[in-house]
Write a protein that binds this DNA or RNA. Structure first.
Lengths: 235, 235
DNA sequence: TGCAACATGACACATGACCGGCAAATGAAT
DNA sequence: ATTCATTTGCCGGTCATGTGTCATGTTGCA
């Protein structure tokens, strides 16, 4: 069940039937997801590896490369959750799908409601696992509120905007490591970096101001001249 | 398989073919359900709205009003799970059914075993959702009248409309938690959320007005900018 | 050191998305 | 036809975000 909008959940739907694809898109967008469509296996694989998605929904029977092959390629590198769909209801396919690492398998026909329920279940599980694996937070450190897109220190929240949150979260995950502008643009702002784009600088500026505003002393956003930005821990 | 714990699950089967209807009744009663038969669309709709069923099983091709129409009428008020049956196996019909809010679609011919499996699955899912959304302990607070679709405070009722009631009930069940617009649209208005849809805002506006009208002070509907709405406890 | 080229910080403003309220249109029920 | 619930369109305001400009700081080179 989707309660609040996360930093925006992105779903890649790989489905060659235009009618079904369109319905998937409409329904999932109505449920608050950012949906990208692809109509064949090769393009799907390219998108899945080049951009960042929270979940991939894929037909098995596809032109180009079939869903199981794409899944296999994906699993060799990525851990992104994958839901397979297929009209081939046979146990064979189902088992093949799961053994390749699929997270769920929907035999056609299925209802769009059913689809939503499964997707939400998987996203919930993934979020839970991530939280479990996350390094423990010390009490006097920043607290990240994934749902609310905000961070807080000892109860006072910084009032970050979603973009600011995504930037800070990236920096936080790569503590003490310089991240390039192109990388930050791609991962946090979801677009390419152009030479005179000053958006990221604005976000950095705001993040600095807001972190100072709540009196955070644990780390500082430092600029690595000509390279990018880095969140540096302070002693 | 049905639990030993009652209450008995009631199913309404709307099917004009007497032979199939009889088979459905026999089989489902054998599985422990209380089955009511109806042979045309109008009567089916009347029964579905006047009595209370846990699931409705309905043919699409019916004398009187066809299954899709009945479903549409039903969905404007009820959330009862509906399973459609049809000899028309086309994608078109299937998708039409789902987009009207059907919970499942069985292309004829189907086995009675298959039917049982699907019914079980749906009932399980609905039970699960109910549990998820179990209402919180109501103190000496608002009194929810599920049947009348209204809430009251110390005897004075707010005069909510059905939609307003469903929205408020959802917010109530998730007290102090921001609910996204897509979620509220999906759950309370039973459709997807599109960008320039103002209906929910209107309902929220009315709910605020009516709650204030009966002098309710226990909680307030707050807007979480860019996220959705939240019912926040006060005091 | 002095200078040019460029990256960055800071500010103001433009754009578009989101929200509240009103009024009118649509739809369903009687 | 009338009434009520619900949806849609519009206006004005606010917020998130991107863009343009200028000031400041850094780099590299003479």
């Amino acid at each position: 069940m989707l309660h609040a909008t996360q930093p925006i959940t992105r779903i890649l739907a790989v489905e060659d039937d235009p009618l079904l694809a369109s319905h998937l898109q409409t329904h999932l967008q109505g449920s608050g997801y950012d949906v990208t469509l692809s109509h064949d296996g090769d393009e799907g694989l390219r998108l899945a590896t080049s951009e960042q998605f929270d979940l991939i929904l894929m037909d098995i029977l596809l032109p180009g490369r079939n869903g199981l092959e794409v899944l296999q390629q994906l699993r060799s590198k990525h851990g992104v959750p994958v839901v397979l769909m297929s009209a081939l209801g046979g146990e064979q396919n189902r088992i093949a799908g799961f053994s390749q690492g699929a997270d769920d398998y929907l035999p056609k026909p299925f209802s769009l409601g059913e689809l939503s329920v499964r997707i939400e279940a998987i996203l919930r599980r993934v979020a839970y696992e991530r939280r479990e694996q996350a390094p423990r937070e010390s009490t006097d450190d920043l607290h990240f509120d994934e749902m609310g897109c905000d961070v807080a220190l000892a109860g006072t929240s910084a009032g970050l905007t979603p973009s600011e949150y995504r930037v800070l979260e990236l920096l936080w995950r790569h503590m003490d490591e310089a991240l390039s502008k192109p990388f930050l643009y791609q991962q946090a702002l979801r677009r390419g970096y152009a030479q005179h784009d000053r958006s990221l600088d604005m976000h950095i500026s705001q993040i600095r101001r807001k972190l100072q505003g709540i009196g955070y002393q644990g780390a500082r956003v430092e600029t690595v001249w000509g390279k990018g930005y880095m969140l540096a821990r302070l002693g």
